[in-house]
Amino acid sequence: MLAIIERFGPMLIDGALITLKITAISVTLAAMLALPLSLLRIQASKKLRWPVQMFISFFRGTPLIAQLFLLYYGTGQFRPVLMELGLWGFFRDPLNCALLTFTLNSAAYQTEILRGALQSVDRRSIEAGRAMGMPNLLLYRHIVLPLAYRTAFPALGNEAILMLKGGAVASVITVMDLMGQTRRAFSQSFDISLYLVAALMYLTISIVFVVLWRYAERYLNRHRILQQRRRSSRSTILN
């Protein structure tokens, strides 16, 4: 096992960095997409809601690997058109295609998470803002979005973990992420312990992420923790 780590360790670490990069970029871009999409999704107008609903349903109802193939190999069918448009350079690169697919896929999931959170915002908070004469933009910036993101926070963290794991399929279209490097190393050595090392690396990344995310969650909810402490200290005084 040690010899294997010595021989392939640097490769695997390179791969892990690519994995981290892919996950970070696509989850961040998806988060930027998810906000406007979720606002459209909760619109009263059916015309605005419908395309977003279809987008969410498609990306949540098909396998990630099929979406990836559709965007990477599928665009090859329109190569002349894409070359004319000057987009072929983008779609030729597997890494770009993986990033695009993962961004769209994660955006669909994050939109659905945000929708739930937006709908769970207490109406009274919104009405209070309205009563103060807040315009819509101010209302969303100071009341609705902070409350919604706080509710959505744990679920968004889960989605990032799912993306980290789902991103392993990028290796199938020759992206050299952690999974890709592991598969290459395995094909050179046929040593099963390589997979176990990769498993440990994936586990470490997700555990570190979960811990950091939980700290961030505690920070976002620090007022509640204070409230709880105050409440419990008050009750001890009363007792």
Binding site: F58, G61, F69, Y73
Partner: peptide
């Protein structure tokens, strides 16, 4: 998925087949 891969290999119509397969998965879901 692999049936689609094989069909793509033979017909060189990746978009068509991968889209069909996606729609099929979507329908089932």
């Amino acid at each position: 998925m692999r049936a689609a891969n094989i069909a793509v290999g033979a017909t060189k119509k990746p978009f068509f087949f991968y889209l069909s397969v996606c729609l099929l998965y979507w329908l089932i879901c």
